[in-house]
């Protein structure tokens, strides 16, 4: 599936239960139109990973995800040989009848996400999640793959992508990425959504939630973001929390129910401890006032 305008893509994302703002739709649209990787940055929980998943749904493409971590290497990102099968194969065959070519053929190859994405027959969205966690050496290797869309396996040869996968990279900015990688990619910063959009998101993701509850929950989270917290809640937390409130059968929020459910919004003990009694009541009042 391809999209001729940003509006078309936006509509398809909406059908995939994702409400992007205009900036993100533009970024995803341009990534497809210009066939360039898209680097998404933003605070935790603003929906970076979700954006890639929804793009895959909208495109009718397969999502292949590579989660990065410190020490990620080629064996876990690209391919690995299945050594135990190889050894068993040599033993099972008659002595001297196994050739090296046979041993290092496709049958014994374990495909990891990058090879899967390059070698796929069907359209693919490749999500490279939290690239900033990978080592710099790996980043350099990735840059090569993203330039040529080909992977060389010494024993087999070079595998070229039949069609370029759409590539989305996310980063939490624990370190600066290589300039070369940034030059190659489009860049979009995702901020927290506006209150209206967050209410829309909650209503879309928590079917059947009372309108008032959705509005008050979104407004309360916005109040929280204005405070000095160790980890301000993202959209993901708003959704979790709204689900909890809805499951409790609430029509609106009050100090008691917020107190009971605060753990789904705030993930640090010191943050939860900072929001209690009077502060909590004030925030609830402000949220109610702000949502009407």
């Amino acid at each position: 599936m391809s999209f001729r305008t940003i509006d078309e893509l936006e509509a398809a994302l909406r059908d995939a239960d994702y409400l992007p703002d205009r900036g993100l739709s533009t970024a995803l649209f341009l990534a497809l139109a210009l066939e360039k990787p898209l680097l998404l940055e933003g605070e935790a929980g603003v929906g970076k990973t979700e954006a890639a998943k929804s793009l895959a749904t909208a495109l009718g493409a397969r999502l292949i995800r590579l989660q990065c971590y410190e020490g990620l290497d080629v064996a876990h990102a690209v391919y690995e040989w299945n050594y135990s099968r190889q050894l068993l194969h040599i033993r099972a065959a008659q002595e001297g009848t196994v050739s090296e070519d046979e041993l290092f053929g496709a049958e014994f190859l374990i495909r990891r996400p990058l090879l899967e994405a390059i070698d796929s027959e069907e359209p693919v969205v490749l999500l490279i999640d939290e690239i900033d966690r990978a080592d710099e050496e790996f980043e350099a290797f990735l840059l090569e793959v993203l330039s040529d869309f080909q992977i060389t396996i010494p024993e087999i040869g070079t595998i070229r992508a039949r069609r370029r996968p759409a590539v989305v990279l996310t980063s939490n900015r624990t370190r600066e990425l290589h300039d070369a990688l940034k030059r190659r990619a489009l860049f979009h910063w995702i901020g927290h959504p506006s209150i209206e959009r967050e209410i829309d998101i909650v209503r879309l993701r928590v079917p059947g939630i009372p309108e008032r509850l959705a509005a008050e929950a979104a407004a309360f989270v916005r109040e929280l973001r204005g405070l000095d917290l160790s980890k301000p809640p993202g959209v993901a937390e708003t959704i979790d929390w709204a689900m909890a409130l809805n499951a409790l059968g609430r029509q609106e929020i009050d100090a008691d129910v917020v107190q009971q459910t605060l753990g789904s919004v705030l993930k640090y003990r010191e943050d939860i401890e900072a929001i209690r009694d009077e502060t909590l009541q004030q925030l609830v009042d402000a949220a109610k006032a702000g949502s009407h």
Partner: peptide
Amino acid sequence: AVDLTRQEDVYFSLRQTLVS
């Protein structure tokens, strides 16, 4: 690739390509 009459789209197109 985008509609030049929409200022928002022009803004994001330039921002996403020129800023990293």
